[in-house]
Design a protein around this nucleic acid. Structure first.
Lengths: 211, 211
DNA sequence: CAAGCGGGTGATTTCGCAATCACCCGCTTG
DNA sequence: CAAGCGGGTGATTGCGAAATCACCCGCTTG
């Protein structure tokens, strides 16, 4: 069996050596090299071309996020797992945006780490359960942001009326505007929500909970 | 030890029964009830108040996403794990937005399912590695979308010049505008990126790769 | 101390979008 | 067939953001 070739990057020599012996006990892994900071890591990855890089964030000289960006710039398909103690939201999101395939905490069990590396090697991504919740929150926020800015205030009001099953003339009466104006608002709503009729608009609005 | 109380929702009776016997073999779980569609699931969850709900997406009468929304509306803190074969992006994102704490595929190993339920019960979130990559892609897209719309075209041009280390007067010459205009653009860039000086702006721009 | 640079404030024009209304078309239904 | 409704096109006004420039302040440096 071809071994999964790794590079370890962490500024704590003790942790790095412990991790090294741990991984070498697992027959499917082969550690090609180690680095104690980002500046050393970039050329090391360049020259050894490992399957997966295990990368710490908090490091002197060049931190893990900068190193990640540099590595991914040189080798865009390089798989990198962030292995860190940081549960900081900015670190997490930055690492994802910079192209990390995994983000796991240092308190992870050896077996889980083994599983993570195998999954990443197979082309999948893995997050520690503790940080997954943060990522899901970020997704929720970004989706609601996207929905918020989409429609103007007035258009949302019209949409609410539509959802109550009101007709054009009823909406016009309720909002003290002409039927023509209501129709124009609905037109814009349909365009922005990329739907073809009132019913579809109401269905998607209910689904997105933007009422 | 207090058992983790579950409710299973899946329209395939065979799968549901198999899952039931599997979970009952694990001493830490207790299955309070089952449902074959979303319409039955909502009142069942309401009455039994389980710790965690395992919910399929593809179901007749009321699909899992609608059921998830209904359940979370009645019991906002209810923990729900989507257990499905769907790797569809829309299903995945919809489930997350609707408040799912987990999204795992039906080909998951029993031990991994056991682990997932325990993590969700503990307040964390879990995704199957196969879908984690999709979520990370969604995060990347939403972050770049956020960055795109943030700065105007002209402001991006100025920022590019800044990143090359050009001074105010050099930028003014390059873009055929006055120094004052350049300064105003930079002012707006600093405001929008929430940074305090040019260097910070360049650093974050490089990090976000919006050059 | 004066020139150059980074940074802050005010003022202008222009352009796009929001909000409004009028008018037109095609379908159903009594 | 005419009245009502959903849907489409054009036109107006007003506000806010983008883009432009002028002027002011404080620091460094020769």
């Amino acid at each position: 069996m071809t071994k999964i070739r790794l590079v370890l990057v962490d500024d704590h020599a003790l942790f790095r050596r412990g991790l090294l012996s741990l991984l070498e006990e697992m027959p499917e892994f082969e550690v090609l090299g180690e680095a104690g900071n980002g500046k050393d890591a970039v050329p090391l990855v360049e020259s050894t071309a490992p399957d997966v890089v295990l990368l710490d964030i908090n490091m002197p000289v060049m931190d893990g996020l900068q190193a990640l960006a540099a590595i991914r710039k040189q080798r865009p398909s390089q798989k990198v797992i962030m292995l860190t103690i940081s549960q900081n939201d900015d670190d997490l999101i930055s690492a994802i945006v910079a192209g990390a395939s995994g983000y796991i905490l240092k308190n992870t069990e050896p077996e889980a780490l083994r599983h993570t590396i195998a999954q990443v090697f197979a082309g999948n991504s893995v997050l520690s359960p503790e940080v997954t919740a943060k990522v899901l929150q970020a997704v929720r926020r970004s989706q609601s942001d996207k929905s918020r800015g989409l429609l103007s205030e007035r258009e949302v009001e019209v949409l609410k009326c539509l959802a109550r099953g009101q007709t054009t003339s009823q909406i016009a009466g309720a909002l003290f505007i002409s039927e023509n104006t209501v129709k124009t608002h609905i037109r814009h709503i349909l365009e922005k929500m990329e739907v073809n009729n009132r019913a579809e608009a109401v269905a998607r609005a209910a689904q997105l909970e933007l009422l």
